[in-house]
Nucleic acid binder design. Structure first.
Lengths: 261, 261
DNA sequence: TAATATCTGAGTACCGCGTACCCGATTACT
DNA sequence: AGTAATCGGGTACGCGGTACTCAGATATTA
């Protein structure tokens, strides 16, 4: 568990946990549980939203809920599985899905991209998590489902639809990673706390590097506000350009073999 | 250090470490160092390439070099700074820069994207690392410099050049994240080791989810080889589409205000 | 209603990892 | 030669994940 990553625990147990709706347990002897899995996940998410993913540990999550540390293990197999659960719960677009109904394909994709960026703003710890081995639960599937609805009334090969959705996810996540250098409160105790201080520390070195002449192209980009770019702007630039390319391609194929609507 | 991320250590000390070329130390009393900073970084990189970033710990890196654990701290302030060093060292495009000379802008950008994908194949642990607070050292700057050379002979506003380079980085990194579900040897001891087993475990749940009717669009994408997509293909699709958009934009601006070459 | 099987909550302890501290050995400058 | 700084590396501590364990509570079954 050194690296917070999805699928770090036993994936079978993660899947059982995420899809627990599939196996409603019958009534059993013994006391009723004091907690629910949802409560634990929400407490962990709240902690992560507030202090970053590094602050999420079993002791503190338990303390947040007013129970002993080991009590959590009655509900969740381990920290790895809890992380998968957190990811799936926040990934659920919930009521967003309804809003996308009736939009055109481009509108839906733009809406998905925008709300994903907002999502990263609300849960910056999602950018700290290594997403290899995604554990697909109801939440993630709902998110993918939402993106796919863009092509509901269009004849796009499934394979291409997948490529498009992945591309958009890449664009949004990539720009979020590049520009959301969030100041997680967790590290405010560290030697350099704010983003501003961060760049300030690097400046003298960058200046010397450019002065050395080893980076001529970089040196030419020193003017104006070339570096003052926000996540929203960078994402929209990449997204718009990409969607222009898609639109051109769709237009071309429509001209090739005309089709009603 | 729970989360392996750049800039986790003291950034000032990281910068001093990365830009150590700026301050060549004069001869000092005491024994000659047995190691060099490069050796340590390379040992750590080799370990990460082989077993993933989670396998990189001070004890094992030291053992790899045949020295005591604490000896490393004579050369490197701490693990966080070592990680920044590893990132910067592998980020250096080295001889790639020469090969890009003379290429057209699109060719350069495609070359950068392709070699970045290969880079992730060689160093999959770079995808496991959280890149917030990038510490800019000579290696990363050289990488950025290489991408910027694409616009050397074109009049593109600096701001836009930045947006394009970032977009390409997002596309490559995003698709790598999505499709390079690498089987890091480190976790081969775990309950599910190969990628195949991984998807196999998820399949029954996905089938039940689709069968439930809650994900109609997903259900429609069940045919053919819609899900069999490789990183290379996904990246090229997104990249080509994006570059098409850029080309169209450049063409439009050239028509607007004609310019020689 | 009584018996029983099972579950809950939580303290204790262990292990892996980063690293602070310390000491003897070594070597350049005066 | 004397001095002072540096090098190697052993020891130990703190933090975080979690295995083990057991007393007490409680829903089901007879």
């Amino acid at each position: 568990m050194a690296t917070p990553q999805t699928g770090a625990g036993d994936p079978k147990r993660s899947l059982e946990l995420l899809w627990r709706e599939f196996e409603p347990q019958s009534s059993r002897p013994g006391p009723k549980p004091r907690l629910t899995i949802e409560q634990i996940a929400e407490a962990a998410v709240a902690l992560a939203d507030r202090d970053g993913i590094a602050a999420v540990n079993m002791r503190d999550v338990a303390a947040e809920l007013g129970v002993g540390t080991m009590t959590l293990y009655r509900y969740v197999p381990g920290k790895g599985e809890l992380l998968d659960l957190m990811v799936d719960i926040v990934s659920d677009p919930k009521e967003d899905a309804a809003r996308a109904a009736g939009m055109g394909w481009r509108e839906v994709l733009e809406y998905v991209a925008d709300s994903t960026l907002e999502f990263y703003q609300a849960h910056p710890w999602m950018l700290e998590i290594n997403q290899r081995r995604p554990v697909l639960g109801p939440g993630s599937l709902a998110g993918y489902e939402l993106a796919l609805t863009a092509f509901e009334r269009h004849t796009i090969p499934n394979r291409e639809a997948n490529l498009i959705v992945t591309a958009i996810w890449s664009i949004v996540t990539g720009t979020a990673l590049s520009y959301m250098v969030s100041d997680t409160p967790a590290e405010q105790g560290g030697p350099v706390s704010t983003e501003e201080e961060w760049w300030e520390a690097q400046l003298p070195y960058l200046e010397r590097a450019v002065a050395s002449g080893r980076f001529p192209a970089l040196g030419r980009v020193q003017d104006e506000n070339a570096w003052e770019i926000q996540a929203q702007e960078a994402m929209r630039y990449a997204l718009d350009t990409f969607l222009d390319g898609i639109a051109a391609r769709m237009e071309a194929s429509r001209v090739e073999r005309p089709k009603t609507t």
